[in-house]
Amino acid sequence: MKRLLTATAAGVALLTGCGSSDSTVSKTPEASSTPAPAPAVAPPAPSVRAAPSTPAPDPCAVNLAAPEIAKTVSELPRDPRSGQAWSPEPLAGTYNECAQLSAIIVKANTNAENPNTRAVLFHLGKYIPSGVPDTYGFNSIKQSESTGDTVALVYSNGTQGLESVVKFRWNGAGVELIGNTPG
């Protein structure tokens, strides 16, 4: 029996010493007669679209539909020539809340052939009610000469071909006239 126990112990020791990682068969892949299947391609996932959202308007963009414009125009004194109020829809403008100086051009709300026009000036989106040189008669804005603190207003007499550009600038405390040049 002693011999049987010794043989059994030797067999257990032999089995314990050998593991599956020592086998040559387990390390060598078997040759396959059929090619490995190609990896399955999953169909494209359905695209999930986010609901379109309207970005908030940029306060530093030109906005000729700003409520401040309609409010300001409704409070302006009437046109001295026709006695009419001013149209709240600007003919032209650079109005934005971030500019040191911006402007709009409005016309008298009349059916006259050549209604009176005027520029209305704003500092940081707020109407400048006083301390502004006379701005009647201007009928457009020269965008190429206007900046964040300067507005180039144009007076044009289309029938005569006369045009004049007048520049106004915000000087830190108010509006000043800085230039008057032929267009």
Rank of each mutant, 00 (worst) to 15 (best):
L5T: 08
L5W: 11
T6V: 09
A7C: 05
V12F: 14
A13N: 00
S21M: 09
S23N: 07
S23H: 04
V25P: 01
V25Q: 12
S26D: 09
T28G: 08
S32D: 12
S33V: 11
P35H: 05
A36K: 13
A38D: 12
A38G: 09
P39H: 03
A42E: 15
A42T: 14
P43G: 13
P43N: 08
S47K: 12
S53Q: 12
T54D: 04
A56L: 12
P57Y: 08
D58R: 05
P59E: 09
C60G: 15
C60W: 03
A61I: 06
V62C: 04
N63L: 00
P67M: 01
I69R: 00
A70V: 11
K71V: 11
K71S: 11
T72Q: 00
V73S: 01
V73N: 07
V73H: 04
S74Q: 06
S74M: 06
E75Q: 10
E75H: 01
P80K: 14
R81V: 12
R81G: 02
S82M: 04
G83I: 02
A85E: 01
P88N: 10
L91K: 14
A92Y: 05
G93R: 06
G93Y: 09
T94Y: 04
Y95E: 03
N96P: 04
A99L: 01
A103L: 01
A103F: 08
I104A: 00
I104M: 04
I105H: 03
V106A: 04
A108S: 15
T110Q: 01
N111I: 06
E113K: 14
N114T: 13
N114W: 10
R118L: 01
L121P: 02
F122N: 03
H123W: 10
L124E: 10
K126H: 15
Y127Q: 07
Y127C: 00
I128A: 03
G131H: 02
G131F: 05
V132H: 05
V132E: 03
Y136F: 15
G137C: 07
G137Y: 07
N139F: 04
Q143R: 12
S144V: 06
E145L: 11
S146N: 03
S146C: 03
S146E: 03
T147P: 00
D149M: 04
A152N: 05
L153H: 03
V154D: 05
V154A: 09
V154F: 08
T159S: 14
T159G: 06
G161F: 12
G161E: 07
L162F: 11
L162D: 14
L162V: 12
E163R: 13
S164E: 15
S164H: 05
S164M: 14
V165T: 14
F168W: 09
W170H: 07
N171E: 02
N171Q: 06
G172T: 13
A173P: 00
V175W: 07
V175N: 10
E176I: 12
L177P: 03
L177R: 15
G183V: 05
G183E: 01
